[in-house]
Nucleic acid binder design. Sequence first.
DNA 1: CGCGTTTTGGAGCAGTGCTCTCGCTTCAAG
DNA 2: CTTGAAGCGAGAGCACTGCTCCAAAACGCG
Lengths: 237, 237
Amino acid sequence: MVGRMNASRTARERVRAELIREIKDVARRQLAVEGAAGLSLRAVARELGMVSSAIYRYFPSRDELLTALIIEAFDAVGAAVEEADAACPRDRHLDRWMATCRAIRAWALAHPHEYALIHGTPVPGYVAPQDTAVAAARDGIVMAGILRDALEAGALSPLPGLPSAPPSFAADAERLRQALFARLSDDVILLALEAWTLIYGTVSFELFGMYKNVIEEDRAAAFDHVALTQAHILGLA
Amino acid sequence: MVGRMNASRTARERVRAELIREIKDVARRQLAVEGAAGLSLRAVARELGMVSSAIYRYFPSRDELLTALIIEAFDAVGAAVEEADAACPRDRHLDRWMATCRAIRAWALAHPHEYALIHGTPVPGYVAPQDTAVAAARDGIVMAGILRDALEAGALSPLPGLPSAPPSFAADAERLRQALFARLSDDVILLALEAWTLIYGTVSFELFGMYKNVIEEDRAAAFDHVALTQAHILGLA
DNA sequence: CGCGTTTTGGAGCAGTGCTCTCGCTTCAAG
DNA sequence: CTTGAAGCGAGAGCACTGCTCCAAAACGCG
């Protein structure tokens, strides 16, 4: 009970971890085929050659399996965003911004059902477990980092003449400043949140069919326009 | 078979129409309680005192029932938006804009599960039937009308210096101009679509828990800031 | 009134999430 | 090395779902 603190636990624990991985992999494949509503524990068990009740040794319920997939999806999009950002020179702030925005859209188009899992209707009882919080924040960390770098480089001049953040936002802004936004102003922080919202809103609208008969010709160009316009508003140029 | 063209059809058809209404009402109540995933045809039938198979004389499948509820939800939010707009003097374009935006958010907060039905993950096989198209367009018609009126009154001056719409958007813009946007420019039409997207994106983020630990203090004020900022960008002032 | 259309009731099929129990395997401490 | 506990898979079973089929009942029009 005492020892064996680090690497390569007991054989039992290793096969257990591997089986958890296999279950998640099969579940993700089934999810990609017919969406979250069609994810069946029994089908996963069948494909793995085990009986359905055995799954419950690894996931206490179907919703817990879904939660695990949600966390992995947040992590995947977070990783895609970090990679896109890291591929740009640190002082090309506009390029980094556009690259991260495009990375979000590209990931979503490549994994529509997983994207729907994290940005569609909350599927389970609708409680977003605390476990997802850290994974869900990775994209925001990257985007905030770009704005921070731009500010420090003196390359951030938000568009003048727009409404200021309401006084009631001050407390939220202060908390966010501590966590991500360093020395950015309340106004810029709120504009950044709105840009973040619009980026995901645009991707969601495109994926969920809201642009049918609205934007048909070149949605990639329209998305670029969204990202570029937000960059102009934030003053990333 | 020939006659009886207008009002007050045969008694059978009247009771049939009423039963369809009752089914939809019960279904909407159940939806409000436990969400779209928990909508059960059998439960609806039970509450109506009929056996489950009888429902299928009125709705060929569960998805068809959901589709009917989706259309009604689109209609309800459309009606709320139209009403909010009509309550403002026609020449107070900014007031009309803010009123319609707030109406969308208010309706969504009052009917979260119905909102999730129309702006969350597409629940059924994921095909959005053509029937929904007209109902889904009502909010857009109102918002486009405000911009049209502002243009005609010479009270529309979009913020200069922002990126222009890409050339590939011209065809979409022309089609949209014919349908709703009258003589508005490509740039304004695209900005309007982005504003429309951001309004719904903000409501969705708020409702689906994305602003947890992000915006906590006064989400109504933050939403107003979104709507007002978009009005400024469009030049509604 | 009578007959045909419409509606309903009930049984049944295939599938789901989940629980419980019963043996079997593995592991670790005595 | 033995023994007892913990982890594990198999199977049966419960309550529920959407949906189909068919016979019985209700209805309404000529």
